Computed example of a mutant assay.
Amino acid sequence: MTQPTKQRLIEAGLSMLLEHGYGSLGVQSLLDQTGVPKGSFYHHFKDKEDFALTVIDTYVGEVHKVLDMCLADRSLAPLARIRRFFEIVSQKYREDGYMGCLMGGLGQELSGTSETFRRKIEWCFSSIGERMVACLAEAKARGDVPASIDPERMGHLLVDCWEGAALRSRLRRDPQSLMAMLDFYISSIRAGAPGPA
């Protein structure tokens, strides 16, 4: 069955944004790659910005789906659920050719020039952080981490650490930075490191 036009555009746009960024994304090159007429693009999207924001929504929706699936797996302890999520992320980075995180790349490129993108990407990171907070609160309630741990701070710190490690993974074309970050983070939180004030 033929993929719907809008979905074809979004999938191609995701790859192009990951590889080249927003500034280098040309609507015509997107149309050439997908074989979609210009009128069809503007039927689904107001302009290039609207298109990119839709791609971000689709991307973060997929991240939420995988994260929620991992964090809901009650067969694993909370910290093991977090580790499972990052194992899946690491595999996805490998499959994508180590292009890293779309939100991190676009955030670096656009946060200083577009308030719309800055707010959208910050919301994306915060929404992921809140899910981590809930999982870490459960770990604390179970006694898996010391009572001194602040799940709110540590959940959002994990997202910050993830983005730095994603950038290093992209630079090195290797997921080791991501997994090394996770090992360090989990050992630190188990030891009671409180995170930044």
Rank of each mutant, 00 (worst) to 15 (best):
H43W: 10
A197L: 02
L171V: 13
M99H: 09
E122N: 12
R84S: 13
T2R: 14
W162E: 05
Y98G: 13
E138A: 15
S15R: 14
M69F: 15
P194F: 03
M103H: 03
A165W: 04
S148F: 01
L136R: 07
A166I: 05
T58H: 15
M16R: 13
A52Q: 01
D73P: 01
P146Q: 04
C124V: 14
R84T: 09
I56S: 04
L136S: 09
R119P: 00
M1H: 12
Q28F: 06
G129A: 08
Q7F: 10
K120F: 03
D174V: 01
F85K: 04
D50W: 07
E62M: 11
I56L: 14
F51N: 06
R173C: 14
R190G: 05
V27D: 06
S24D: 12
R168E: 09
E152M: 08
S24C: 09
R118G: 00
P37V: 08
A139D: 01
G105I: 09
L30R: 13
H43N: 05
G155A: 08
A147C: 00
E95Y: 05
G100W: 07
L171I: 12
G39A: 11
S177K: 10
R190M: 08
R84W: 05
R168G: 08
G97W: 10
L110Q: 03
S148H: 00
G21F: 05
S126V: 10
E49S: 11
Y59Q: 10
V66Q: 15
S114T: 03
V27R: 08
G143Y: 00
T54A: 13
F51G: 11
Q33H: 10
V55F: 06
R173I: 02
R168C: 09
A193P: 02
E130M: 04
G112T: 12
R94M: 12
L110I: 14
D174I: 00
I88A: 13
S15E: 12
E19S: 15
E19R: 15
G13P: 07
A72H: 08
D144A: 10
G35S: 01
L14P: 07
E163R: 10
K6G: 03
G105F: 05
E62C: 06
K6F: 04
G195R: 00
P175T: 08
D174S: 06
Y98T: 04
S90G: 15
E115P: 01
G21A: 10
L182Y: 12
V63S: 09
G104C: 11
P78I: 01
I82N: 09
L178V: 15
R118W: 01
A166G: 02
L67V: 11
